[in-house]
Design a protein around this nucleic acid. Structure first.
Lengths: 143, 143
DNA sequence: TATTGTTATACTCTATAACTATA
DNA sequence: TATAGTTATAGAGTATAACAATA
């Protein structure tokens, strides 16, 4: 398929979309990185620190510090692993679950407001395109 | 239009897309913030520091430091404004222009590889949806 | 010896407050 | 007095290297 200008217009559009999400995401006082961790934990349950670092593509010390900061804020909790005494299980607290829910609602609302400005055809394209791209990323990443 | 689940599936897809772009964008050793500045300067020409800070939604000191770091790396250049001696004009260097071009090509290639995995209908949807969303953001931001 | 996690250190990116120089 | 920019300081988020504890 011809993407026109080597897809550079699409890259520019995507960059703008990224900036938009970042601005919306910041509302609620949670960074992209913290948000990503909290979302993963509330979606997949408690996990090992090493596993979280690998999943986020971040170093182990970086994840240690992120968990420490978020534990200080009462959003996650460390539990010692029962079977391997070296290990640590990180889980989300009730406050963390609450925050995830509130942020998800905020973001969905912002995206809906954006989509509401589009023509019906464009709206349909968005509903098709976004999940399709997400699936493609998943397929490419696991390959 | 019904977005299904209050658009939360779309938000999740968008988050994944954001993560993907961030990873691709990092290749080349330039952060999102630095990349944004370099792109703006090479797109719109030399600008005042205050103007750049406002355009990126960032504080004036943050932009001062960003420009200082990038000047140290030879990507941008400060010039004293002729008409207002308080002012500073920030412009991109030849090395900066080169880097912008290389990164744009890399990103376009990554996005094309992703799109190539999609069905023709989905590909068409992406080409429609991304620019449409970018336009909506522009319209909303300037409103 | 290998793995899990932490600590030490350093860099980028961000903010607010205080300051200098020009208008 | 107001505006443009910088400096001072602090915090989040990141990395690599060195370390402790467990396997």
């Amino acid at each position: 398929m011809d993407l026109g200008g080597s897809g550079e217009e699409l890259v520019a559009a995507l960059a703008q979309l990224v900036r938009f999400v970042r601005q919306v995401s910041t509302a609620g006082g949670l960074s992209t990185a913290a948000s990503s961790l909290l979302n993963r934990l509330s979606r997949e349950g408690p996990q090992r620190l090493t596993e979280l670092a690998r999943a986020d593509g971040v170093s182990q010390p970086a994840m240690t510090q992120m968990v420490t900061r978020m534990e200080r804020e009462g959003l996650v909790r460390r539990t010692s692993s029962t079977d391997d005494r070296r290990g640590v299980l990180v889980g989300v607290t009730d406050a963390g679950v609450d925050l995830v829910g509130r942020r998800r609602a905020e973001q969905a609302e912002a995206l809906q407001a954006l989509i509401a400005r589009l023509d019906p055809d464009e709206q349909k394209a968005v509903v098709t395109a976004l999940p399709a791209l997400a699936r493609a990323i998943e397929a490419q990443t696991s390959a």
